[in-house]
Simulated scan of single mutants.
Amino acid sequence: MLQDGPSKSAHRTGRRWRDSDEATGLALISPTLLYALALLFLPVLIVIAYSFWTQDYLTIDHTFTLENYRIALTEPIYRDLLARSLVIALVVSLVTVVFSYPVAWFISFHGGVHKNLWLFLITVPCWTSYLLRVMSWKVILGYQGVLNTGLMSTGIIETPITSLLYNSNAVVITLVHSWAAFAILPIFVSLEKIDRSLIEAAHDLGDNKVMSFLRVTLPLSLPGVISAFLIVMIPTVGDYVTPKLVGGKDGVMIATAIQAQFGKAANWPLGAALSVTTMVVVSAMAGLVVLALKLFVRWIR
């Protein structure tokens, strides 16, 4: 009887857990969770496996090799493309967050009963095709586009500006516009969760509007800022449509080289190695940016 005591107790504990709401909820989401994890990790594992192989025309050699990573890390063209992609992604993310924060702050603190309307208007551009939005900027920034035509009609310039399109600046402008809504929404949600009485308490203790923003509003909204930054930066590095349409030779990014390896070059292992290298570097960069944001907020407080 003494030997059966712990066993029966563990059995009763396990039975209680199986009958609990937590176990029921886990059982309900398990199929979906496993399906999502499979869709997330299996493609990544396949890409990692390809990165250690070689390809001769259409024949894959499954012999383990690090040659693809040597090329990805030592060839100047790929190093330069990766460095340019990281710089563009960082600039796009910073500019997008800086411009999106005031919009989200205005809607949260001054939107009143029209908050849903403002959010609706912000998401309207996302209803159109991403390709159409990129092409619209090509029309705006073109040699005979809307911007040049407007500046010439007002007499500000006499001849069209040729440096507006087919460079990295055009890529930054287009991507900032394309990802603005995706940055506004998480910042808005974070601002909505802030207890307004904390801001009032800061005012009562002598802080002006600027100091209360720096000490209360900004630190409490930091999760939304970090989410917005990551939501913008990570897909930006992998975007090859925008650089191809508005970037020209000066706006080419690493995703274009990856797409070329999987496409015309038919060198999937090298494309996989470039993808894995980019993924690792972007993850490290994202971690450093998040740490820098947290240290900045701690410093200003």
Results as ranks from 00 to 15, higher is better:
V189A: 15
S136K: 00
V91W: 06
V210W: 14
V92S: 08
P243D: 08
S51C: 07
G206K: 04
H110G: 02
L191Q: 07
F262Q: 01
L165H: 07
I194N: 05
R15G: 06
S227K: 08
A83L: 13
G25Q: 14
P243C: 09
Q3H: 10
L230R: 04
D195G: 01
L73A: 14
I258C: 07
H11E: 15
L117W: 13
D239T: 07
Y166D: 13
I71A: 13
V103G: 00
W179A: 04
F52N: 01
S221F: 02
I60F: 08
G271K: 01
P243Q: 07
G111A: 05
A181L: 03
L175S: 10
P125W: 03
A292G: 12
F188M: 03
L26P: 06
A49P: 00
R70L: 08
L94S: 10
K264C: 00
V246L: 09
L165Y: 14
R12N: 13
V91S: 09
T242G: 08
R84H: 12
L45W: 09
L26W: 12
T32G: 15
M279S: 14
G111R: 01
Y240V: 06
F106V: 15
H114V: 13
G238R: 04
V91D: 09
V44Q: 08
G112R: 04
A180F: 12
I199E: 11
N167D: 12
L147H: 08
H177V: 03
I48E: 04
W179F: 15
L165T: 10
T149R: 09
I161M: 12
G287I: 07
I234Q: 04
A72W: 03
G238A: 11
S9V: 15
L141G: 05
V246F: 06
G251K: 09
A49T: 13
T277G: 06
P31S: 10
W268D: 05
A265Y: 10
R12S: 14
L90K: 00
P219G: 00
V91P: 03
L191W: 06
R301G: 11
V216E: 02
I156H: 02
Y130S: 02
Y78L: 11
P219V: 01
A181I: 08
T236L: 09
R133Y: 01
D239L: 10
A36R: 02
F109T: 09
L26Q: 08
T256M: 12
E75T: 14
G224K: 06
R12P: 05
H114M: 13
D207K: 05
D21P: 03
V237M: 12
T24P: 00
A183M: 12
L205E: 06
L185N: 04
T278D: 03
L28R: 13
A228L: 07
L230N: 05
K244G: 05
K138S: 11
L58I: 13
T149M: 02
Q55Y: 04
G238P: 06
R18M: 13
V98A: 15
V95A: 13
G287P: 08
F213L: 09
H11N: 13
F64M: 11
